[in-house]
């Protein structure tokens, strides 16, 4: 009974989810807990830590396909990284990655936020329409990517047919170097809008309606309400949305690979595509540089994560 009472007191006013239950009263409690946790720990070690370790190992050896099977590669230290960084294709891939990622998350966020604000005030059918917006997020990527490929097809695509009606000539969206990156970016923005909408909409629900009422009494218009209330109060949610968007977009392979395979002539090759192509895209798998590029990608994502944590902390202090 005492246990129940303390819990009831501890729970008072706070969501139960945050309450720490009393752990291991009995000495055996800790072992039981570890037994329940063991499958996950083993799983993380075998299926995350080990592949990651293998990946680092691949990147500091010279794994030819033959050495790959026989397991006797030559140790080359950081040579693979040096080769990758001094490759002419590296700067181009870095630039494509930056453009693809930043343009994608900027538009996904802006459009997702605009839609979230639009849906913030419920209206007839709003719940149904909001659910429909999830569709691009739920579809298998191969489905979306092949649909976009056909829509952007030079000769028979609906996009060019539409433009023709306005007298605009044929644009080779996926096959000309000038538009390939733009095309996959547009498709990726379309894919990312639902995720941004869902998170930002949930964030909007936590802004107290009384603030808007008070602002309304003070005569603030919709524009002022957005910039003075919605946007500042949504900042933590915005930060995590953008961080996750960055992490997810950096590693995108499928949508680009299916639509353009990084081409034409590397015009839409990002770092992730480069890595994928070296390892699996050609008849001659070249795992060592691919692993080096992959590890650079992890470093970039990790740096973004650290930056996010630092900014959060700064905000907490000020």
């Amino acid at each position: 009974m005492a246990l129940i009472r303390t819990d009831a007191v501890a729970t008072g006013g706070r969501p139960t989810a945050k309450v720490s239950p009393a752990p291991g009263r009995r000495p055996s409690g800790r072992w039981t807990a570890l037994a329940f946790l063991a499958p996950l720990v083993v799983y993380l070690l075998v299926f995350y830590a080990y592949p990651l370790y293998r990946n680092i190992e691949l990147s500091v050896h010279d794994y030819t396909p033959r050495a790959f099977v026989q397991g006797d590669p030559e140790f080359t230290g950081l040579d693979n990284y040096r080769a990758v960084l001094s490759d002419d294709a590296f700067l181009a891939a870095l630039r494509n990655t930056a453009l693809f990622t930043l343009v994608s998350i900027a538009f996904q966020y802006a459009l997702g936020l605009a839609l979230a604000v639009f849906f913030q005030r419920g209206f007839r059918l709003s719940a149904v329409l909001r659910a429909m917006f999830l569709v691009p997020w739920l579809l298998p990527l191969i489905v979306s990517a092949s649909t976009w490929s056909w829509m952007l097809n030079s000769d028979n695509g609906i996009v060019n047919a539409f433009l023709r009606a306005f007298g605009i000539g044929q644009i080779n969206w996926l096959t000309s170097p000038g538009t390939a990156l733009l095309s996959v970016t547009v498709a990726n923005i379309w894919l990312g809008i639902p995720f941004n909408l869902v998170i930002l909409y949930a964030g909007l629900q936590n802004i107290p309606a009384s603030l808007y009422e008070a602002a309304g009494l003070d005569g603030a218009n919709a524009w002022q309400r957005f910039w003075r209330i919605t946007f500042p109060l949504l900042r933590p949610v915005s930060a995590i949305t953008l961080l996750l968007g960055l992490i997810y977009t950096l590693k995108v392979v499928d949508i680009i690979w299916i639509m353009t395979r990084g081409g034409p002539a590397d015009a839409s090759a990002t770092l992730a595509i480069w890595s994928y192509r070296e390892a699996f895209g050609t008849g001659q798998p070249d795992f060592s540089p691919a692993a080096a590029v992959g590890n650079l990608l992890i470093l970039i994502a990790f740096a973004a994560g650290l930056l996010h944590v630092r900014m959060q902390r700064k905000e907490g202090i000020s």
Binding site: S20, P21, P23, G24, G29, R30, T32, A33, L34, F36, L37, L40, L44, Y48, Y50, P51, L52, Y53, R54, N55, L58, L244, I247, Y248, L250, K251, V253, A272, S275, Y276, A279, F280, F287, A290, A291, G294, N295, L297, I298, A301, F302, G305
Partner: peptide, 28 residues
């Protein structure tokens, strides 16, 4: 329920797993 404290490390690990590109996992 069993290990309310000391789960920060697991949380952190689970977030880091999100940063690993699928192509890296595929190579591993």
């Amino acid at each position: 329920k069993l290990l309310p404290r000391g789960t920060g490390a697991i949380d952190f690990l689970l977030l880091v797993t999100q940063m690993i590109p699928a192509v890296v996992m595929a190579m591993g």
